[in-house]
């Protein structure tokens, strides 16, 4: 089903699947949806997460150490889809686990699991022809990253190749929380508006309601990742779903949801 941001701004919640374990991830994702997240990004843990900061690195390391595999994440997606038919569901992965499974097989499996879209961190538009064809064949939305450093020509290509939404990286750098949202984000969203009609979601460094409100002034959605993963890291598995639900509700404070 298509990805829609019901609220203004929409809220996208990233979790590393399998941290602390798959059952808890499932409960956390359901709690996040019920607390108002429009889209869940299910992160596939990878041994070498080179675009991620320490928080997601650690989560990824723990999940890999527990033996969490791409097939497990797809099975989890299927459970979430069955439990919450209307939520947006995106598989978020580094390329290698997907390549190992095979692009076509992966896309078919993602479709079967009920995913709406896929984001591959280290897939750029120029290399994506085979991937895009497999996504198209399965009616899945390929979501690409746009960076403050991306020149106009690249933003155009990213806009053309993406479906669902474009993921605007709020600042140069790796994932992780920060105090304020950089001016980079607003400017990037404006540049994206000039080349695409797709919704634009802003991610990297968004960790509180003030950030979400700020992003809501110029973008369609805010993506929360490391802040959520850090919260899960310091909370017991039994408490994590409740704590995450409250956190998501807190992010909503002061928005129109």
């Amino acid at each position: 089903m298509p990805i829609v941001f019901k609220s203004k701004p929409g809220l996208v919640a990233y979790v590393t699947a399998g941290d602390p374990n798959l059952e808890t991830t499932r409960a956390i994702a359901l709690a996040a949806i019920d607390a108002g997240a429009d889209v869940i990004e299910l992160g596939v843990p990878f041994s070498d997460p080179l675009a991620d900061g320490p928080v997601i690195q650690r989560a990824s390391e723990r999940a890999v150490a527990r033996g969490t595999r791409l097939t497990d994440v797809l099975a989890l997606a299927k459970e979430l889809r069955a439990a919450r038919p209307a939520c947006g569901l995106v598989i978020f992965s580094y390329l290698n686990p997907v390549v190992r499974m095979g692009l076509a097989k992966f896309c078919a499996a993602a479709k079967d699991a009920g995913a709406d879209g896929v984001l591959l961190t280290d897939m750029i538009v120029e290399e994506a022809a085979e991937y895009l064809a497999a996504m198209e064949a399965n009616d899945l939305a390929p979501i690409f990253l746009a960076a403050p450093t991306s020149p106009e020509r690249r933003l155009q290509a990213i806009g053309r190749a993406s479906k669902g939404f474009v993921y605007a990286i709020s600042r140069v750098g790796i994932t992780g929380t920060q105090d304020t949202i950089a001016g980079d984000a607003k400017e990037l969203v404006a540049r994206l508006r000039a080349v695409t009609d797709l919704p634009v979601a802003v991610g990297f460094g968004i960790s509180n309601a003030t950030h979400v409100r700020a992003v809501g002034e110029f973008a369609d959605a805010a993506i929360v990742g490391s802040a959520l993963v850090a919260l899960i890291e310091k909370t017991s598995p039994a408490d994590a779903p409740r704590v995450v639900g409250e956190f998501i509700q807190g992010l909503r404070a002061g928005t129109s949801a």
């Binding site: 080179l50 675009a51 390329l95 961190t121 280290d122 897939m123 750029i124 120029e126 290399e127 690409f144 990253l145 746009a146 960076a147 403050p148 450093t149 991306s150 020149p151 690249r154 990213i158 990286i169 140069v172 750098g173």
Partner: peptide
């Protein structure tokens, strides 16, 4: 070969 990197690096690689 090819280029499989986060988008942020693409401008620098180019």
């Amino acid at each position: 070969g090819g280029r499989y990197v986060p988008e942020t690096l693409m401008a620098a690689l180019e």
